[in-house]
Every structure is written in structure tokens, then in C-alpha cells.
């Protein structure tokens, strides 16, 4: 299934090539191997996922096999091998968020938003990923991070739904952290 999705998406690989040319110039093969994960991070940051074509670019640039890159992409939780929704949401499930109720929140968002097995909403507006680690902004627990930089804290069922609706509608979310 991932293959059909991948073939349908047009990816501009030039920005990735440019980053690789600029920042990823190993002196030897040993260093090239050390740089693979970092290069994958760049692709993930650029596209929101690591398309097969991007893996191939990285593989060619560093002189490693694409199989090895796929092996890494499927081991490390940061990477996606299929495209995310329009907005990528990380829902923190660290211990601090847990004690503030993130487990129930995850159950509720699953029900309310009808998330698919890959965490996508049916309309493709969001892909929700539960983070097992910690986003490190525990004072806002339970907290979600949307599109890398925007944090929404002190979430509950209603607030999260409101935040998601606002983003769907392209409206700004006024109250950033939900503190009364």
C-alpha cells in the first residue's frame, strides 16, 4: 500500500540535494555511515515523511544502500514512510501528561476524530502520532505539538476538538495554553 501512495506523490528532491551538498560531506565511509540518520532527519523535516525517492537520494549521496536506510526508517520512531496528513500532530504521552490524563485524551481523540490505523483523520487534515517519550514542556501537560512549533497545552476533550477545528478552518487559536 505504501508503494501506491508513494508513486502518486510528486516530490521535489532538489531542496534535499542542496542540504546534502551543503552539510553532509563525509571525509570517509565511516563518517558517511554516521551521517545517515542525520540525513534522514533532514528529509523528515523537509517533507514530513521520508519518501522512497528521498531515501534513494540519501543513499546515493552517502554511498550506502537504500535497504539500510529503510531498515533505519522502520526502526526509529521519528520517521514516517508514508505521507502524513496536512497537519502533523504529536500528542505527548510522557509520564507527566499521563498523570494529567493523556491516556483518556488519546482514547477520546481516537473516537472523536475516527483516526485510522496510521493515525490519520478521514479528511486527511491531521495525522496524530502519540509520542512515547516526552516533549519536554511538562508545565503544559497534557500537551500536543502541531506542525513542529505550535504547542497547545492543558488539553481536554473539548479543547483539543476546538483546537483541531480551528486549524481545519484556518482560524488562529486564540488561547495558546488553555490557562484560565
Amino acid at each position: 500500500m505504501a508503494d501506491t501512495t508513494q508513486s502518486q506523490v510528486e516530490i521535489d528532491l532538489e531542496p534535499l540535494r542542496e542540504i546534502l551538498r551543503r552539510d553532509f560531506n563525509p571525509d570517509d565511509y565511516q563518517e558517511a555511515e554516521e551521517l545517515i540518520l542525520g540525513a534522514c532527519q533532514e528529509a523528515q523535516l523537509l517533507y514530513g515523511w521520508v519518501p522512497q525517492a528521498a531515501s534513494q537520494v540519501i543513499a546515493d549521496h552517502l554511498g550506502v544502500s537504500i535497504n539500510r536506510i529503510y531498515g533505519l526508517l522502520t526502526f526509529y520512531a521519528d520517521f514516517r514512510t508514508d505521507p502524513p496528513g496536512e497537519h502533523a500532530m504529536l500528542l505527548c504521552h510522557g509520564a507527566a501528561c499521563f498523570v494529567m490524563g493523556s491516556e483518556r485524551l488519546i482514547r477520546e481523540i481516537n473516537d472523536d476524530q475516527h483516526l485510522g490505523p496510521d493515525g490519520r483523520t478521514p479528511d486527511g487534515a491531521f495525522s496524530v502520532q502519540v509520542v512515547n517519550g516526552c516533549l519536554g514542556v511538562c508545565n503544559l501537560a497534557p500537551v500536543a505539538q502541531i506542525d513542529h512549533h505550535h504547542y497547545f497545552g492543558h488539553l481536554n476533550r473539548e479543547r483539543l476538538a476546538a483546537v483541531m477545528q480551528a486549524i481545519r478552518d484556518g482560524r488562529p487559536v486564540e488561547d495558546l495554553d488553555g490557562v484560565e
Binding site: E34, L37, G38, C40, Q41, Y76, A77, N132
Partner: peptide, 10 residues
């Protein structure tokens, strides 16, 4: 000193 990054695996 070189900086290397991981990929989110505990």
C-alpha cells in the same frame, strides 16, 4: 567534536 543525532528510540 562532532554532533550526531538519533531518531527517537528510547
Amino acid at each position: 567534536v562532532k554532533t550526531r543525532t538519533g531518531g527517537g528510540a528510547y
